[in-house]
Protein backbone atom coordinates (compact mmCIF):
# COMPACT_ATOMS: atom_id res chain seq x y z
CA UNK A 1 0.00 0.00 0.00
CA UNK A 2 2.72 2.43 0.99
CA UNK A 3 4.76 1.78 -2.14
CA UNK A 4 1.69 1.98 -4.32
CA UNK A 5 0.85 5.39 -2.85
CA UNK A 6 4.32 6.66 -3.44
CA UNK A 7 4.24 5.72 -7.13
CA UNK A 8 1.29 7.96 -7.89
CA UNK A 9 2.82 10.97 -6.27
CA UNK A 10 6.53 10.83 -7.08
CA UNK A 11 5.99 12.96 -10.17
CA UNK A 12 4.69 15.81 -8.05
CA UNK A 13 7.35 16.08 -5.42
CA UNK A 14 9.68 13.96 -3.37
CA UNK A 15 8.64 15.43 -0.04
CA UNK A 16 4.96 14.88 -0.77
CA UNK A 17 5.63 11.24 -1.52
CA UNK A 18 7.48 10.99 1.78
CA UNK A 19 4.58 12.59 3.57
CA UNK A 20 2.08 10.24 1.90
CA UNK A 21 4.15 7.33 3.13
CA UNK A 22 4.61 8.69 6.61
CA UNK A 23 2.95 6.42 9.11
CA UNK A 24 1.59 9.39 11.06
CA UNK A 25 -0.14 10.69 7.93
CA UNK A 26 -1.66 7.31 7.17
CA UNK A 27 -2.86 6.92 10.73
CA UNK A 28 -4.38 10.41 10.71
CA UNK A 29 -6.31 9.75 7.50
CA UNK A 30 -7.48 6.34 8.72
CA UNK A 31 -8.65 7.75 12.05
CA UNK A 32 -10.39 10.69 10.46
CA UNK A 33 -12.16 8.50 7.93
CA UNK A 34 -13.20 6.00 10.55
CA UNK A 35 -14.65 8.82 12.65
CA UNK A 36 -16.54 10.15 9.63
CA UNK A 37 -17.98 6.70 8.87
CA UNK A 38 -19.03 6.18 12.49
CA UNK A 39 -20.94 9.47 12.40
CA UNK A 40 -22.40 8.57 8.97
CA UNK A 41 -23.61 5.26 10.37
CA UNK A 42 -25.17 7.05 13.37
CA UNK A 43 -27.04 9.43 11.08
CA UNK A 44 -28.24 6.64 8.79
CA UNK A 45 -29.35 4.56 11.78
CA UNK A 46 -31.25 7.46 13.35
CA UNK A 47 -32.97 8.52 10.14
CA UNK A 48 -33.82 5.10 8.74
CA UNK A 49 -34.84 3.96 12.22
CA UNK A 50 -37.32 6.83 12.13
CA UNK A 51 -38.45 5.99 8.57
CA UNK A 52 -38.88 2.31 9.48
CA UNK A 53 -41.00 3.33 12.48
CA UNK A 54 -43.18 5.36 10.14
CA UNK A 55 -43.33 2.50 7.66
CA UNK A 56 -44.10 -0.34 10.05
CA UNK A 57 -45.05 0.93 13.52
CA UNK A 58 -46.63 4.32 13.14
CA UNK A 59 -48.82 3.62 16.17
CA UNK A 60 -45.76 4.05 18.39
CA UNK A 61 -45.21 7.57 17.05
CA UNK A 62 -48.92 8.38 17.37
CA UNK A 63 -48.90 7.55 21.10
CA UNK A 64 -49.60 10.59 23.28
CA UNK A 65 -46.99 11.47 25.85
CA UNK A 66 -48.50 12.64 29.12
CA UNK A 67 -52.08 13.88 29.42
CA UNK A 68 -52.33 16.11 26.37
CA UNK A 69 -52.43 15.60 22.61
CA UNK A 70 -48.67 15.87 22.05
CA UNK A 71 -47.47 12.55 20.67
CA UNK A 72 -44.18 10.74 20.94
CA UNK A 73 -43.71 11.48 17.23
CA UNK A 74 -43.17 15.20 17.91
CA UNK A 75 -40.03 14.92 20.11
CA UNK A 76 -38.77 12.02 17.98
CA UNK A 77 -39.16 13.93 14.70
CA UNK A 78 -37.62 17.10 16.13
CA UNK A 79 -34.95 14.90 17.70
CA UNK A 80 -33.97 13.56 14.26
CA UNK A 81 -33.47 17.15 13.05
CA UNK A 82 -31.52 18.16 16.16
CA UNK A 83 -29.38 15.01 16.05
CA UNK A 84 -28.37 15.90 12.48
CA UNK A 85 -27.21 19.33 13.64
CA UNK A 86 -25.47 17.83 16.69
CA UNK A 87 -23.55 15.20 14.69
CA UNK A 88 -22.43 17.89 12.24
CA UNK A 89 -21.23 19.98 15.18
CA UNK A 90 -19.34 17.05 16.72
CA UNK A 91 -17.49 16.42 13.47
CA UNK A 92 -16.58 20.07 12.98
CA UNK A 93 -15.28 20.47 16.53
CA UNK A 94 -13.16 17.32 16.31
CA UNK A 95 -11.82 18.19 12.88
CA UNK A 96 -10.92 21.71 13.98
CA UNK A 97 -9.34 20.70 17.30
CA UNK A 98 -7.66 17.40 16.48
CA UNK A 99 -7.26 16.60 12.79
CA UNK A 100 -6.45 20.04 11.41
CA UNK A 101 -3.55 20.78 13.82
CA UNK A 102 -2.07 17.30 13.23
CA UNK A 103 -2.24 17.69 9.46
CA UNK A 104 -0.84 21.21 9.72
CA UNK A 105 2.13 19.95 11.76
CA UNK A 106 2.85 17.25 9.18
CA UNK A 107 2.61 19.75 6.33
CA UNK A 108 5.08 22.05 8.05
CA UNK A 109 7.47 19.19 8.68
CA UNK A 110 7.45 18.20 5.02
CA UNK A 111 7.33 21.77 3.85
CA UNK A 112 4.22 20.98 1.82
Amino acid sequence: MAIEQAEGITETSKSLADMANDERYERLVTRRNRFAWVLTTCMLAIYFGYILLIAFRRDILAQPIGEGVTTLGIPVGLGVILSGIALTGIYVIRANRVYDPELEALRREYDA
Binding site: L39, M43, I46, Y47, I51, G77, V80, I81, G84, Y91
Partner: peptide, 17 residues
Amino acid sequence: LIYSTGFLVGWPIILFL
Protein backbone atom coordinates in the same frame (compact mmCIF):
# COMPACT_ATOMS: atom_id res chain seq x y z
CA LEU B 1 -42.26 16.86 9.56
CA ILE B 2 -41.27 13.61 7.80
CA TYR B 3 -40.46 15.65 4.70
CA SER B 4 -38.40 18.13 6.73
CA THR B 5 -36.30 15.48 8.46
CA GLY B 6 -35.47 13.86 5.11
CA PHE B 7 -34.38 17.18 3.67
CA LEU B 8 -32.15 17.86 6.67
CA VAL B 9 -30.34 14.57 7.23
CA GLY B 10 -28.60 14.71 3.85
CA TRP B 11 -26.41 17.50 5.22
CA PRO B 12 -24.44 15.58 7.84
CA ILE B 13 -23.77 12.92 5.18
CA ILE B 14 -22.44 15.55 2.79
CA LEU B 15 -20.15 16.85 5.50
CA PHE B 16 -18.79 13.47 6.63
CA LEU B 17 -18.16 12.03 3.18
